[in-house]
Protein backbone atom coordinates (compact mmCIF):
# COMPACT_ATOMS: atom_id res chain seq x y z
CA UNK A 1 0.00 0.00 0.00
CA UNK A 2 1.24 3.46 -0.83
CA UNK A 3 0.49 6.13 1.72
CA UNK A 4 -1.26 8.64 -0.48
CA UNK A 5 -2.50 9.58 -3.90
CA UNK A 6 0.22 10.53 -6.35
CA UNK A 7 0.19 11.51 -9.98
CA UNK A 8 1.69 8.71 -12.04
CA UNK A 9 2.82 7.93 -15.55
CA UNK A 10 0.46 6.09 -17.85
CA UNK A 11 0.50 2.44 -16.74
CA UNK A 12 0.80 -0.55 -19.03
CA UNK A 13 -2.80 -1.20 -20.03
CA UNK A 14 -2.20 -4.59 -21.65
CA UNK A 15 -4.60 -7.10 -20.09
CA UNK A 16 -6.36 -4.33 -18.18
CA UNK A 17 -9.67 -2.55 -18.48
CA UNK A 18 -10.86 0.83 -17.25
CA UNK A 19 -13.59 0.19 -14.67
CA UNK A 20 -15.93 3.15 -14.21
CA UNK A 21 -15.77 4.54 -10.67
CA UNK A 22 -17.15 8.07 -10.45
CA UNK A 23 -18.20 10.93 -12.76
CA UNK A 24 -18.60 14.66 -12.41
CA UNK A 25 -20.56 16.61 -15.04
CA UNK A 26 -19.65 20.00 -13.63
CA UNK A 27 -16.10 20.09 -12.35
CA UNK A 28 -16.08 23.89 -12.58
CA UNK A 29 -19.10 24.41 -10.34
CA UNK A 30 -16.54 25.87 -8.01
CA UNK A 31 -13.88 27.10 -10.49
CA UNK A 32 -10.99 26.36 -8.13
CA UNK A 33 -11.66 22.64 -8.63
CA UNK A 34 -11.29 22.98 -12.38
CA UNK A 35 -8.10 24.98 -11.88
CA UNK A 36 -6.71 22.24 -9.64
CA UNK A 37 -7.20 19.56 -12.28
CA UNK A 38 -5.90 21.77 -15.08
CA UNK A 39 -2.73 22.48 -13.14
CA UNK A 40 -2.20 18.99 -11.73
CA UNK A 41 -2.52 17.26 -15.09
CA UNK A 42 -1.07 20.05 -17.26
CA UNK A 43 -4.35 20.16 -19.17
CA UNK A 44 -3.71 23.48 -20.86
CA UNK A 45 -0.92 21.69 -22.74
CA UNK A 46 -2.24 18.13 -22.96
CA UNK A 47 -5.93 18.81 -23.49
CA UNK A 48 -7.84 15.72 -24.51
CA UNK A 49 -4.80 13.88 -25.86
CA UNK A 50 -4.32 11.56 -22.86
CA UNK A 51 -6.09 10.75 -19.60
CA UNK A 52 -4.31 11.68 -16.40
CA UNK A 53 -3.30 8.89 -14.02
CA UNK A 54 -2.83 8.60 -10.28
CA UNK A 55 -1.83 5.81 -7.97
CA UNK A 56 -4.14 5.40 -4.98
CA UNK A 57 -3.43 4.01 -1.50
CA UNK A 58 -4.34 0.44 -2.53
CA UNK A 59 -1.69 0.57 -5.25
CA UNK A 60 -4.30 0.61 -8.00
CA UNK A 61 -3.94 3.13 -10.80
CA UNK A 62 -6.86 5.39 -11.68
CA UNK A 63 -7.44 7.18 -14.98
CA UNK A 64 -8.92 10.67 -15.05
CA UNK A 65 -10.73 11.15 -18.35
CA UNK A 66 -11.53 14.81 -18.80
CA UNK A 67 -14.58 16.04 -20.68
CA UNK A 68 -14.83 19.16 -22.81
CA UNK A 69 -18.05 21.03 -23.54
CA UNK A 70 -18.39 23.71 -26.19
CA UNK A 71 -18.62 27.18 -24.72
CA UNK A 72 -17.21 26.22 -21.32
CA UNK A 73 -13.68 26.32 -19.91
CA UNK A 74 -11.82 23.02 -20.10
CA UNK A 75 -12.28 20.63 -18.43
CA UNK A 76 -16.06 20.74 -18.03
CA UNK A 77 -16.28 17.30 -16.45
CA UNK A 78 -14.23 14.31 -15.42
CA UNK A 79 -14.72 10.56 -15.22
CA UNK A 80 -12.58 8.41 -12.93
CA UNK A 81 -11.79 4.81 -13.86
CA UNK A 82 -9.92 2.15 -11.92
CA UNK A 83 -7.29 0.31 -13.97
CA UNK A 84 -8.04 -3.33 -13.16
CA UNK A 85 -7.37 -6.77 -14.60
CA UNK A 86 -9.52 -7.07 -17.70
CA UNK A 87 -11.76 -9.94 -16.65
CA UNK A 88 -11.74 -9.47 -12.89
CA UNK A 89 -14.49 -7.74 -10.91
CA UNK A 90 -13.54 -4.69 -8.93
CA UNK A 91 -13.15 -5.01 -5.17
CA UNK A 92 -15.74 -2.49 -4.07
CA UNK A 93 -14.36 -1.73 -0.62
CA UNK A 94 -10.93 -1.06 -2.06
CA UNK A 95 -12.32 1.16 -4.78
CA UNK A 96 -14.43 3.05 -2.26
CA UNK A 97 -11.51 3.74 0.05
CA UNK A 98 -9.35 4.79 -2.89
CA UNK A 99 -12.00 7.22 -4.10
CA UNK A 100 -12.25 8.73 -0.63
CA UNK A 101 -8.46 9.18 -0.65
CA UNK A 102 -8.70 10.78 -4.12
CA UNK A 103 -11.28 13.23 -2.79
CA UNK A 104 -8.98 14.12 0.10
CA UNK A 105 -6.07 14.61 -2.30
CA UNK A 106 -8.25 16.82 -4.47
CA UNK A 107 -9.41 18.96 -1.55
CA UNK A 108 -5.82 19.35 -0.33
CA UNK A 109 -4.85 20.49 -3.80
CA UNK A 110 -7.73 22.90 -4.22
CA UNK A 111 -6.76 24.49 -0.94
CA UNK A 112 -8.33 27.13 1.30
CA UNK A 113 -11.09 27.64 2.12
CA UNK A 114 -11.58 23.96 1.27
CA UNK A 115 -9.96 21.74 3.89
CA UNK A 116 -9.51 18.03 4.44
CA UNK A 117 -10.87 18.51 7.96
CA UNK A 118 -14.15 19.75 6.50
CA UNK A 119 -14.25 16.89 4.01
CA UNK A 120 -13.67 14.34 6.74
CA UNK A 121 -16.23 15.98 9.02
CA UNK A 122 -18.75 15.95 6.17
CA UNK A 123 -18.01 12.30 5.52
CA UNK A 124 -18.51 11.43 9.16
CA UNK A 125 -21.75 13.44 9.32
CA UNK A 126 -23.14 11.47 6.39
CA UNK A 127 -21.78 8.18 7.81
CA UNK A 128 -19.58 7.47 4.80
CA UNK A 129 -17.85 4.13 5.50
CA UNK A 130 -14.45 5.16 4.17
CA UNK A 131 -14.56 8.34 6.27
CA UNK A 132 -15.36 6.38 9.41
CA UNK A 133 -12.57 3.93 8.65
CA UNK A 134 -10.11 6.75 8.03
CA UNK A 135 -11.09 8.19 11.41
CA UNK A 136 -10.46 4.81 13.06
CA UNK A 137 -14.19 3.99 13.27
Amino acid sequence: MTASVTIAAKPDLAGKRLAFALAEDRVGHYPEFRAFFAKSFDLDRIGLAEPGFVTAPSGLAYAFVFIGRSGEPFPAGVEIYAVVDALEPVEETTLDADLWAVLGWMIDGVGAPWTRDDLEATGRLYRIPAAAKAAGG
Partner: peptide, 28 residues
Amino acid sequence: RIFPWRMSHAPLVGPYIFGKYNGLTGRG
Protein backbone atom coordinates in the same frame (compact mmCIF):
# COMPACT_ATOMS: atom_id res chain seq x y z
CA ARG B 1 -21.01 27.17 4.77
CA ILE B 2 -18.46 24.74 3.41
CA PHE B 3 -19.12 22.32 6.26
CA PRO B 4 -21.36 20.54 5.75
CA TRP B 5 -23.33 22.04 2.90
CA ARG B 6 -21.01 23.18 0.11
CA MET B 7 -18.60 20.30 0.73
CA SER B 8 -21.40 17.76 0.44
CA HIS B 9 -22.10 18.65 -3.20
CA ALA B 10 -18.66 19.91 -4.29
CA PRO B 11 -17.25 18.54 -7.56
CA LEU B 12 -16.82 14.76 -7.28
CA VAL B 13 -17.73 14.92 -3.57
CA GLY B 14 -21.42 15.30 -4.45
CA PRO B 15 -21.49 12.26 -6.73
CA TYR B 16 -19.71 10.31 -3.96
CA ILE B 17 -21.60 11.38 -0.81
CA PHE B 18 -25.03 12.10 -2.30
CA GLY B 19 -24.67 9.68 -5.23
CA LYS B 20 -22.91 6.53 -4.02
CA TYR B 21 -24.23 6.87 -0.47
CA ASN B 22 -27.59 8.60 -0.93
CA GLY B 23 -26.48 10.99 1.80
CA LEU B 24 -29.22 13.57 1.41
CA THR B 25 -32.12 11.13 1.31
CA GLY B 26 -30.80 9.03 4.16
CA ARG B 27 -28.78 10.92 6.72
CA GLY B 28 -29.62 14.41 5.47
